[in-house]
Amino acid sequence: MALLETRGLNKRFGGLQVTSDVDLALEAGELHCLIGPNGAGKSTLFRLILGEFPPTSGAVFYDGQDVTRLQPHERIRRGISVKFQVPGIFASLSVAQNLEIALQHHLAGHGLRGEVRRLLGFLNLAGAAAEPAGNLSHGQKQWLEIGMAVSLKPKLLLLDEPTAGMSPEETRATGEMVRALNRDGVTVLAVEHDMAFVRQVATRVTVLHFGRIFAQGSIDAIVADERVAEIYLGRGHGERGAPQPAGGEAKRG
């Protein structure tokens, strides 16, 4: 059974159709990447899955239940967790307290403090535990937010461009961590522009274009798909390691 399923998901802002009839199914244990050109509706689809606004029509099923009418925090409590592109942290609170706030759902007292210490070590932030989180570097903020998202012990982890602004080494390290999480049983849906990252982690890829599912399959099948290359990969705007099909640059017209 699919862990996450969207059925005929439509979102219209005034006259603008942002997603059209999106039927996306994620099997439990999948590591699924969502790609597509800017404006393809990736972020909107994320926000529909999270419930930040209601769909114009269609439904979201999670863990076999219709969650379309649930508030975002209710979906989170059922085991969905998210890391946004811009790190969302509590800037003036200490790094340790940031983690505490995420962990206190299921831990308290000694157990909570121990888990905070363990996570700080895991995230390479042990030396900064008492620092205000706002003082961290951009990369460290990304890690902290990933730490917070993981602290919820999610079944489904949504990642919105997790490697934005990262160096190639950091990107690789993030990819390793995402794979490790996935091996531990977390289902992952990631929006990502970085094709090296997608290649490194994805078991399945969905291409979104003009709000519709344009193609779906393994990364190799997607890369080999001429139509995909046409709309997305062929433009070559900054996808590190993206394959450059012959004549790709001519597609702009």
């Binding site: 989170i76 003036s92 706030i101």
Partner: peptide, 20 residues
């Protein structure tokens, strides 16, 4: 912890499962 988290970043607090 939750009320200062809401002061700092209500969106993040929601996305940690709190009804702000």
């Amino acid at each position: 912890n939750v009320i200062v988290a809401i002061r700092e970043n209500p969106h993040r607090a929601t996305m940690l499962g709190y009804d702000v």
